[in-house]
Simulated assay, not measured.
Amino acid sequence: MQYIILLRGVNVGGRTIKMAALKSCFEENGYQNVQTILQTGNVIVQANEKNIAKLQKKAEAELTAAFNYPAKVLALTPEQLENIVRQYAFTNIDAGFHRYIVFTENGFEKQLVKDCGVLDKNMEAVKAGAGVVYWCVQKGYTLDSAFGKYMNKMAVKHFITNRNVNTLEKILAKCG
C-alpha cells in the first residue's frame, strides 16, 4: 500500500535532517518506492503494513533510532489526504493569503479552534475539520498571527504538524 508520512518538526528549531538521509532511513527499513518532497519531512512510501496505526508507530521508532530525536509522524493514505485537501474550508481567499492545514490527534482540532482566542478576521480564519484545522492567514503574518502563536504554544503539549495546501497538492501529484 502507498502511504504519505508527514514528520513533525523537521528542519525547524535546529533539527536538520537531509532528505537523502531520510530517504535512506526508510529504504533501509524495508519501505519501497521512497520519495521525499521538499525539505519539510514529507515522504511517500510503499509498505506491506495494512494497519496505519502500526505503520505510524513503526516509522516513529525507526526515525527516533536513526536520527536520535523523539520522532512524531502522521501516516495517511493518498485517498485520505486528497479528501482532506478537497474539503479545505476557505475557497474564496486571494493571493495575499497562505492556505494551511494543521493536522492534530485525538480530536484536538475542536479544542484548538475553540480556545485560540479572538482572531483578526482581516488577517486570518480557522475552521475545524475531521482531525485537522483549516487555516488561512495573510502572508507575512503566519508566526505573528493570534492563531499562529497559539498553535505554536499548543504544539509543545499536543501533536500538531501543519502543511501549506500547495505542498500537499505537490505530494498528491507524486502519488500514483
Rank of each mutant, 00 (worst) to 15 (best):
Q2D: 05
Y3L: 02
G9Q: 11
G9L: 08
N11F: 05
V12D: 08
M19L: 08
M19Y: 09
A20E: 13
A21F: 07
L22F: 12
C25Q: 12
F26T: 14
E27Y: 06
G30R: 10
G30F: 09
N33I: 02
V34R: 09
L38A: 13
Q39M: 09
Q39R: 14
N42G: 07
V43H: 05
I44D: 03
Q46W: 09
E49A: 14
E49I: 06
E49H: 04
K50P: 09
K50D: 13
N51H: 09
N51S: 14
K58G: 01
A59F: 09
E60D: 09
F67H: 06
F67V: 12
A71N: 03
K72V: 04
V73H: 06
A75F: 01
T77N: 01
T77R: 00
T77D: 04
P78F: 07
P78W: 11
Q80N: 00
Q80T: 10
R86P: 00
R86A: 15
R86E: 14
Q87R: 14
Y88M: 10
Y88L: 05
Y88V: 08
Y88N: 07
A89W: 13
N92Q: 15
A95W: 10
A95S: 13
F97G: 08
H98V: 00
T104D: 03
G107I: 10
G107E: 07
E109K: 00
E109Y: 06
K110D: 14
Q111N: 14
V113P: 03
K114F: 02
G117M: 00
V118N: 13
L119Y: 01
L119R: 08
D120R: 14
K121Q: 12
M123A: 08
E124Q: 12
V126N: 02
K127Q: 15
A128L: 04
V132W: 07
V133C: 03
W135N: 03
Q138F: 09
Q138M: 15
K139V: 11
K139W: 11
G140P: 11
L143N: 12
L143M: 13
L143Q: 11
S145Y: 09
A146E: 15
A146C: 07
A146G: 05
G148Y: 01
G148K: 01
Y150L: 01
Y150G: 05
N152D: 13
A155Q: 12
V156Y: 05
F159W: 02
R163D: 03
N166R: 15
N166C: 01
K170E: 04
A173W: 02
C175K: 06
C175F: 02
